[in-house]
Design a protein around this nucleic acid. Structure first.
Length: 120
RNA sequence: GGAGUCGGCCGGGCAGCCGCCGCCGCAGCAAUGCGGGGGAGGAAAGUCCGGGCUCCGCAGGGCAGGGUGCCAGGUAACGCCUGGGCGGCGCGAGCCGACGGAAAGUGCAACAGAGAGCAGACCGCCGAUGGCCCCGACACGACGUGUCAGGGCACAGGCAAGGGUGAAACGGUGCGGUAAGAGCGCACCGCGAGUCCGGCAACGGACCGGCACGGCAAACCCCACCUGGAGCAAGACCAAAUAGGGAAGGUGUACGGCUCGUCCGUACGACGCGUGGCCCGCGUGCCUUCCGGGUAGGUUGCUGGAGCGCGGCGGUGACGCCGCGCCUAGAGGAAUGGCUGCCGUGGGCGCGCAAGCGUCCGGCACAGAACCCGGCUUACAGGCCGGCUCCCACC
RNA sequence: UGGGGCGUAGCCAAGUGGUAAGGCAGCGGGUUUUGAUCCCGUCAUUCGGUGGUUCGAAUCCAUCCGCCCCAG
């Protein structure tokens, strides 16, 4: 069952810093993913949707929900990495389906980049 | 039926599956699992005001600084709200107004213009009075003087009505008046720190007075009232690792003593650096335990409150009082979502005389709690309810 | 989330009630064989927007918009 508990998230500033500083980056048209391997056996997600890129709070929330939902559904196919998703400027008003396609491309690239995917 | 105006309210609905965040119950050492129940707004926004709460400061009062500004009331408080006054807009219902003081003082007014503040005379008007010139009549006396009547000049002087400048020119209109004019006089309007009456007051009415007192206080200012500073990243508690602070104990060598012990006394400390050694100088102990401050991190503040609903009473109203009922988000890199079906609603297209039916839509606003309230302001697809006004038609 | 600051030509900016300084850049001209330098001229229909006060607003007041900084 695809759940999304607290342990599957990045919680502390240090964890974000580590992913952003040492992580490998995957860029798409609207989003950037920075990921670094962890030793937990499952992936963890952190979101950094800057106010500068998406000025309206309601749109930031919409994007974050969409990312979390697809992460929830895709996490069994992902390797054990800490990853931070950043919003790039200009993605404020894009339609939901466009965001879905962008996310799908990202998940595939992350899954392909690291050989050992989490199996449980 | 149309146009308008004011007030109140909603701002998608119902299901199914999969998730997210608190709370309660049960099980478990725990992680967690199962069950129940809850989970964004009218603006949650802008942060423009006012409070609560917390810490800091503080005897009281005043000054400075800041704010408010017709009057009265409401309120925890307000720059908010209600009622009233005055002014303006509208046929009207209604709407709008930073709306105290310019007679406390100091200032400001470019350019234009004669003159810009108790001013001024450019064009102009007059020239009654005085002056000069022309002419006539009369008197005296002999070509002059005087008196009177008429005409002219614009010299003295008078005027500020009209023209012109300006945003603004020292009350307005009319009549009288005058040489021409002028509040010089009168009527109405305006004005007034006068008197009386009504009103808690703002203010209004009547009478009286006389024409003096221009504008700007979102210029300084005066008057009245209010006002300490910072903010939940406030503040409180627990508290690693590392470094440093304080306290206690232990830890080196030599000699001597005896009750021969991890004992007592005395002396030298020891190590590193500066020169290998000495003197000298500088620097530093090590180990154990405890204490205090305190970082990371964690806990708390954290949601029951000037609360919401209904009813009654008082008040024109804002609002207040009483009774009954209800519990209604508390996250923390941050939940309140995803997919699907049906309905509602809007638009396009097709069929149909029409009602309507079918189909498509990546149509259905503004927008997301972060300590909590009261306001203001700004954004907002569409829709519902009620009061009132005006116009048209008909009975 | 809270606190603070700024907005004047393409850029840097002065001006704080009375015709919007100055510099760089640009454009036109002059000087020079040509270029650089230098000289002259030109460049603000909304002083971020909208209302208001005033005779008059970049300036004073209200409100909205945009940008930047600080506090983890």
């Amino acid at each position: 069952m695809a759940r999304f508990p607290r342990r599957a998230r990045l919680l502390k500033p240090g964890e974000f810093q580590a992913a952003l500083k040492r992580g490998k980056r995957h860029n798409d048209r609207w989003l950037t993913a920075a990921c670094v391997v962890n030793d937990l056996g499952h992936p963890r997600l952190g979101l950094a949707i800057a106010k500068k890129s998406v000025p309206l709070a309601t749109q930031r929330n919409r994007i974050k929900r969409k990312i979390r939902e697809t992460f929830r559904l895709q996490q069994l196919q992902l390797p054990a990495v800490d990853l931070v998703i950043l919003a790039r400027p200009g993605c404020a008003g894009i339609p939901a389906a466009e965001l879905d396609r962008s996310l799908e491309r990202l998940w595939k690239r992350i899954a392909a980049s690291s050989p050992g995917s989490s199996s449980d």
